[in-house]
Amino acid sequence: MPSRESILAAVRANRPAATPLPPVADFAGEATVEQFTHWLHFIGGQVIRLAPAQPLDQVVRQLYPDATRIASDLIPATVPVDQQTPTEVLEAVDVAVLRGELGVAENGAVWVPEVNMLHRALPMISQHLALVLDHRSIVATMHQAYAAVQHTGNYGVFIAGPSKTADIEQSLVIGAHGARSLVVLLR
């Protein structure tokens, strides 16, 4: 018997008596910019509130004065990136400026679906990452976040702060493999 059938048969024979699936959980919480900012700071990220008229590319240039290779579909990019972009090009990107769909107040996470990434590896391979987020798209908790995201699409990531590790003696080091810094530009 192929393993699939034997495994399923064993599960059927051994599974416990049926219990109900609880209804989808939903707990209230504060869906505020303050909470979101607090938590993003807590996990090593930064929030910058944009004035309504402030041009995005100007802000980016101020934030990353040394960046020469910028990938973005929101501001004029210096490195064009799409799904076919080869690894060597991606690897050299200094900053990626991408759109975040949704922010989560309880933990500072931002939902970035594949369509916002230009290339799936870009948010992680870029040395620095800036996510542009509409302040009205902040929700309180992960419950509301998943309710809003519905199905998670082909590929999508909640990104909460810069890449980090504490694998050496529990000392926190920012910038493990992914982006060394994360800024959320709120508008």
Binding site: W39, T152, Y155, G156
Partner: peptide, 14 residues
Amino acid sequence: QPVTTYTSHFAKPA
């Protein structure tokens, strides 16, 4: 931590 840095959802290959 309030959440892991990356919570990644893989459904379909690129």
